[in-house]
Each structure stands twice: as C-alpha cells, then as structure tokens.
C-alpha cells in the first residue's frame, strides 16, 4: 500500500516513517504541508517532530496548514490516518481525535522504551495482536500526557477506542508504568470509525532488529491493511 507521509517544516520523523514503511515493503511518499491533495487510495501518516516549532502548543499551528483539509477528507472517506507523537498532537488539535496532549507530568522530555498493552485487536492497527499482548515501543516526547473530559474518557472506554495503554514489563497497567501522567494510562486511541489512530509511542522506531526491536511492525502493517501471518 502507498502512504502519504505529511512533511511539516519541523517534522523530524518523516524520513524515519518512510524508511520503516519501505523496510516493511510498503510505498511511501513525502507530502509537503503546503500541498492540498491526498490520493483516495493512500494511507496517511502524520509523523513526529515539532511541526511549526510547537512553541505555542504542540500541533496548534499545524492544524491550520494547507494540507489539513485533505487529511480530514481522507479520514472521512475512511482512509487510514496515523498520527505518531507530534502527529497525535496535531490530530487532537485538528479535532480528528478527542482530547489533548499536555506537558508530561514529570515535566521532562522522556526518550526511552515503553511497554504497551494492546487493549483490543478490533482496529486495523491492532489486528496483528491479541488483547493483553505487551509490546515494547519507544517513546520520545515532552508533551504526551493525554487529557480529556470524563465524558470523553468514558466514551473512549465504552467504545473500546483506547488501543494502547502504558503498562509494565509484565503487562500490568499500573501508575508506575505511566511515563507522562496520561489519564487511564492512555498511549494511543482511535476515532469512532476506527480508521484514525493517534499514539505517542513511535512504532517506526522498532521495525528492525538493529534498532532494538520489531514490535512496531504489526501496527504499520495493520495500517497498510496487511493481515497477520500465521
């Protein structure tokens, strides 16, 4: 499948996403933020980075960029849209996903491996996994603390839209395993149609053994509509 990796001026994981997708046998093209078209056949990736410097609020300026109407249209058409890290922040700011990402509770930027519990296989992105499976996927963010109103959190839970939660190595979702203070240990959520994913951890950073693990492959392959090999 072909992916459009959106390149904001301050994106810095755009090339990494392209590389990871290629390693997984997928096609990827970079789409500059001032373009306005996304192919109806493409998947969309909003990569990590600091879209427009992100000094005001992460993703706040990016939501107004010329490419965003096309991203919204793609999401409405049912194309997969994956926002990773800064991409997640942008999706929230743009209203494609509910809630917001605020400063890490510990106030520091954190770059380390995180354990994620897969909450449901019911989405393209988690179709490779079973409920309760533990993945090791790196995080690298300063503002990844997921916040939403109690009503929204309830809705997310009721509709099983929390796809990943921070957990410990044993797969338990406990406060100590929460690297940024996110409500309900949320690491990744999807929209009601289940075609838009936002997650703080970086699956593109763990698709090769040499990079320290391959747990991210299933997420990207799932996004590409490729089923799990049995």
């Amino acid at each position: 499948m072909r992916f459009a990796v959106i390149q904001f001026p301050g994106s810095n994981c755009d090339q990494d996403c392209v590389h990871a997708l290629q390693v997984l046998g997928q096609e990827a093209r970079l789409v500059w933020h001032q373009e306005t078209k996304i192919d109806p056949e493409e998947g969309v990736i909003l990569p990590g980075g600091f879209s427009y410097g992100d000094y005001l609020r992460c993703g706040a300026i990016a939501r107004f960029s010329p490419i965003m109407p096309a991203v919204k249209a793609a999401a409405e058409r049912g194309q997969v849209v994956v926002g990773i890290c800064n991409g997640f922040q942008i999706l929230c700011e743009a209203g494609l996903l509910p809630g917001a990402l605020t400063r890490n509770e510990g106030l520091h930027f954190r770059c380390e491996k995180a354990y994620l519990r897969v909450e449901t296989p019911a989405s393209p992105f988690t179709s490779h996994y079973v409920t309760g499976e533990t993945l090791t996927i790196p995080i690298a963010h300063g503002e990844g603390c997921y916040r939403a109103s109690p009503e929204i959190l309830q809705e997310l839970e009721a509709q099983q839209r929390v796809l990943f939660r921070y957990c410990n190595a044993e797969g338990q979702v406990v406060p100590e395993a929460n690297p940024n203070g996110s409500s309900h240990n949320i690491a990744g959520i999807c929209n009601a149609q289940r075609n838009v994913l936002g997650m703080m951890p970086h699956p593109e950073r763990c698709c090769e053994v040499e990079m320290g693990g391959t747990d991210g492959r299933g997420i990207l392959l799932g996004a590409a509509g490729i089923g799990r090999k049995i």
Binding site: G53, I61, F64
Partner: peptide, 9 residues
C-alpha cells in the same frame, strides 16, 4: 522564537 512562530502563522 515563540512569538515569531505565532506571528508567522
């Protein structure tokens, strides 16, 4: 830099 980025936007 913050102000500059917002002005630019």
């Amino acid at each position: 830099p913050q102000g500059e980025a917002v002005a630019h936007a």
